[in-house]
């Protein structure tokens, strides 16, 4: 089965265009947030998306998740056009998105309960992924009893429990302190390699973008467009050596920073003129 579909992209975006109204008024002025995004993401690829704030990264991810619909263009998941959230995609949220009234296990079981899976198998699946992220001692804890890093592990376990092939991650480690973030990145790499998922990962952290990615997508703003995509061909597993000291790392990072910086300078010029 898998072999027959291996050439189909996990995700394909065709001419995605999205505008937002500036107010609730029907005739209100609209701003163009995304303009003609075309993108193809390989199965099993780790794609990071980076860009200046306001470039529409999160909007793009929400469109891929079908939480919002584009004005024009289509989103295809494994070759099929999608218009609502589905089982092949699972999302990890920036502010974790855990239900504060549910325990860890109930949060992780939530997607399975929505699908009416029998309680027993749902529990087993959830436990498996809670162990995978190393939280088996906190199964019955409530989110407010956990640190930010632990809460995001729950978020990750919940996304994994769906069995989706595609993980959509919206700045998942943005709200986590720097040291914990490094551990989480390493762990995410390990899980990604174990589970062979396709990952779309939004970040505003250059190091993180390069460190994790097979390919970095750089967006520009006003309106959001794909500026370029840059392959990252650093050897894996990347946490076994000093990847930041690797020549290739510095090269990609430097290139991205130049491009981002140009965008920021332009933006500043616009704002002050």
């Amino acid at each position: 089965m898998k072999d027959a579909t291996v050439d189909v992209p996990a995700i394909e975006l065709r001419g995605i265009r999205k505008t937002f109204a500036l107010s609730d008024d029907e005739n209100a002025q609209r701003v163009l947030a995304l303009d003609g995004i075309d993108l193809s993401i390989r199965q099993g690829e780790f794609l990071t998306i980076i860009g200046p704030s306001g470039c529409g990264k999160t909007t793009l991810l929400r469109i891929i998740a079908s939480l919002i619909l584009p004005d024009d263009g289509e989103v295809m998941v494994e070759g099929e056009t999608v218009r609502e959230p589905g089982l092949k995609r699972a999302m990890v949220f920036q502010t974790f998105g855990l239900f504060p009234w549910k325990t860890v296990i109930d949060n992780v079981m939530f997607p399975l309960q929505v699908r009416n899976e029998p309680a027993e198998t749902a529990r087993e699946t959830a436990m498996h992924h809670i162990r995978q992220v190393g939280l088996d001692r906190f199964v019955d804890a409530y989110p407010h009893q956990l640190s930010g890093g632990m809460q995001q592990r729950v978020g990750l376990a919940r996304a994994l429990s769906t069995g989706a092939d595609i993980l959509l991650m919206d700045e998942p480690f943005g709200a986590i302190d720097a040291q914990t973030r490094e551990l989480m990145q390493e762990e995410l790499m390990r899980i990604w390699q174990e589970e062979q998922k396709t990952v779309v990962f939004i970040t505003h952290d250059l190091d993180e973008a390069v460190l994790l990615a097979d390919r970095v997508l750089l967006m520009s703003r006003g309106p959001g467009r794909v500026r370029e995509t840059i392959p990252v061909e650093l050897p894996r597993p990347r946490f076994d050596y000093d990847v930041r000291g690797h020549e290739g790392f510095a090269k990609v990072r430097g290139h991205l920073w130049q491009a981002l910086r140009n965008d920021l300078v332009e933006q500043r010029a616009e704002e002050t003129s």
């Binding site: 929400r62 998740a65 939480l67 609502e84 959230p85 589905g86 089982l87 995609r89 699972a90 999302m91 949220f93 502010t95 998105g97 239900f99 939530f110 997607p111 929505v114 699908r115 919940r158 769906t162």
Partner: peptide, 21 residues
């Protein structure tokens, strides 16, 4: 954000969202 979470994991329609979230 929790409404988004529920929707992304397959809760569909206003009435189910009312009861789950």
């Amino acid at each position: 954000d929790l409404i988004d979470v529920a929707r992304s994991f397959g809760v569909k329609g206003e009435i189910p969202l009312l009861f789950t979230v």
